[in-house]
Computed example of a mutant assay.
Amino acid sequence: MLKILYLEDEASLAKIVKESLASRSFEVMHLESGKNAVKIFNEFKPDVCVFDVMLPEKDGFEVAKEIRAHNTITPIIFLTAKNQTTDLLMGFDAGGNDYIKKPFSLEELIVRINNLYFLSKNKSGIADSSTGVKIGKYVFSTTKQELRFEKEVRKISFRECQLLDLLTNSMREIVTRKVILDTVWGDDHFFNSRNLDVYITKLRSYFKSDPKIEIITLKSVGYRLID
């Protein structure tokens, strides 16, 4: 039975979603605010989180950031009426894995929950010792979500960490766009594809101190990381 931590302050919607998930044999812990969400997360240990963004006392983005400070694995889906690109990017940078706009289909939500749970359990990872993984003159740590160059340490977002993890795990090999989009974003629709381009540009800028490191684009195919 999959355990879902569900944050939603709209009572009528929360009742419908909770009952629908329960009818599909999900165990749902529902909270009306983000105030004690991190404490409940640590105690409940959910398989997937479903967070409304606009919440009293502490919003969904804040809760996600606090969770990602010590947990980079559990998938987080944001539910929101917002539709601006900046809001979506804020959600991904806060550590979200997926983003569903209200109003949404309950069937779509269930499919995305199952998909993200499957990916989180089957995602191949790289060995990450206490010293991290070397990429040229950089050291990359998935557990600390950081990229180190000599004495300079850059904290990277959860999604940047996932993307770099995939590329590093297949160093010098092609990682297709579809594999990246399905693994990091949950699906390969157009908006996520555009986001991927933005994140690749950001990662390239992080490696500017070592010109030997390249993230090569194979148009319409994917990317290859070389050092």
Rank of each mutant, 00 (worst) to 15 (best):
residue 187 D to E: 13
residue 200 I to L: 11
residue 116 L to K: 06
residue 106 L to P: 08
residue 211 P to G: 02
residue 200 I to Q: 12
residue 143 T to Q: 01
residue 221 V to P: 04
residue 105 S to H: 13
residue 166 L to R: 05
residue 49 C to A: 01
residue 47 D to N: 12
residue 100 I to Y: 09
residue 159 R to W: 11
residue 175 V to F: 03
residue 120 S to Y: 00
residue 164 L to P: 05
residue 200 I to A: 07
residue 134 K to Y: 12
residue 223 Y to T: 05
residue 208 K to H: 04
residue 61 F to C: 05
residue 118 F to N: 07
residue 2 L to E: 12
residue 32 E to R: 03
residue 37 A to P: 12
residue 158 F to V: 09
residue 180 I to S: 03
residue 157 S to F: 02
residue 118 F to D: 14
residue 178 K to W: 02
residue 144 K to C: 04
residue 71 N to K: 08
residue 193 S to A: 13
residue 166 L to C: 13
residue 177 R to K: 15
residue 181 L to H: 03
residue 76 I to K: 01
residue 130 S to E: 15
residue 223 Y to L: 09
residue 153 V to C: 06
residue 210 D to N: 02
residue 108 E to Y: 06
residue 49 C to L: 01
residue 122 N to P: 05
residue 111 V to C: 11
residue 218 L to R: 12
residue 166 L to W: 05
residue 204 R to W: 00
residue 111 V to A: 15
residue 212 K to I: 05
residue 180 I to C: 03
residue 203 L to E: 03
residue 41 F to M: 12
residue 131 T to H: 14
residue 90 M to T: 15
residue 122 N to S: 09
residue 99 Y to N: 05
residue 22 A to G: 12
residue 145 Q to C: 14
residue 174 I to V: 15
residue 220 S to V: 04
residue 108 E to N: 07
residue 155 K to D: 06
residue 60 G to P: 15
residue 119 L to G: 02
residue 69 A to Y: 03
residue 195 N to E: 12
residue 80 T to S: 15
residue 39 K to Q: 14
residue 21 L to P: 13
residue 10 E to C: 03
residue 97 N to L: 10
residue 45 K to D: 03
residue 17 V to E: 05
residue 76 I to R: 08
residue 1 M to I: 14
residue 74 T to C: 10
residue 214 E to H: 00
residue 30 H to R: 10
residue 194 R to Q: 06
residue 13 L to I: 15
residue 63 V to T: 08
residue 97 N to W: 08
residue 10 E to D: 10
residue 27 E to P: 07
residue 79 L to A: 05
residue 123 K to S: 10
residue 126 I to C: 09
residue 143 T to R: 01
residue 59 D to A: 04
